[in-house]
Every structure is written in structure tokens, then in C-alpha cells.
Amino acid sequence: MKTCLVVDDSSVIRKIASRILEDMNFRIVEAEDGAQALEACKRELPDAVLLDWNMPVMDGFEFMMHLRQLPGGDQPKVVFCTTENGIDHISKALHGGANEYIMKPFDKEIVAAKFQEVGLIAAPV
């Protein structure tokens, strides 16, 4: 079973995202901000990170920069999931090593499409 780290300061978003991802057979680890997420990654690298941008303590982008420096930290697929919907943020995320990008609001279909895009789940046959 693959693991997905869901990082968002909104417990509602974490809950919705977790439910969607559990239906796709992911084991979920949650974090409220980038710092918590980084701690979680130091304990165990997930297969995927669903990552908000704006969060207290440490934002999503800074977390990703740290993650990519960890041993094996280039492996997890990072999918941003944020209200930062401008092309400037998207480009910055991609240059910083993000694999995909979800613009909020999102739904199950979008998460599924994006996770397929980066090979985390198989495309429907």
C-alpha cells in the first residue's frame, strides 16, 4: 500500500483529501504545516505528498525544498494543492521540483487525474 502525506493547515481540507485518497488505496499521514510534514518525512518517506502552499510555521514550498535535500527525498511525488492559482506560483513550484499542481477548489476526479498523471495510480482501463 502506498503512503500519501496530506499537508494542509485546514483540518477540513485534510479530511476531504484523506477520504478521497483512502478510496484510492493510500495509507494517509497528515501534517498541519511544512515543519510537521518535514518531521514526518524524516521518520518515513511517503510515496506521495499532497501539499498546500500557504501554511503557518513553514509553507509548502519551503518544505518541498527541504524534502528534496533529504536522502531519497527526490523520490516522493509532490502534488501541490493550493489556492495559489497564478502561473507565477505554478512555474515556481515546477522549477522547485513539484511533480503536479492542483488548483483549488478540487474534487475527486481532479485528484485522480493528477495522481494518474504522475504514475501514482493506474489509469482506468
Binding site: G86, I87, L94, E100, M103, E109, K114, E117
Partner: peptide, 20 residues
Amino acid sequence: SQFEVQRGLPIQMLVKYFKQ
């Protein structure tokens, strides 16, 4: 719309071939 470009279109292609 934002919804339409998020289903099936890889983000790299969105950045490369679309203007916001």
C-alpha cells in the same frame, strides 16, 4: 475554466501551451 484544464492535462503542458 480552471476545472476544465485540470482533468487530463499535465501541468507542464498547461504552463507550456496556455496563457492565464
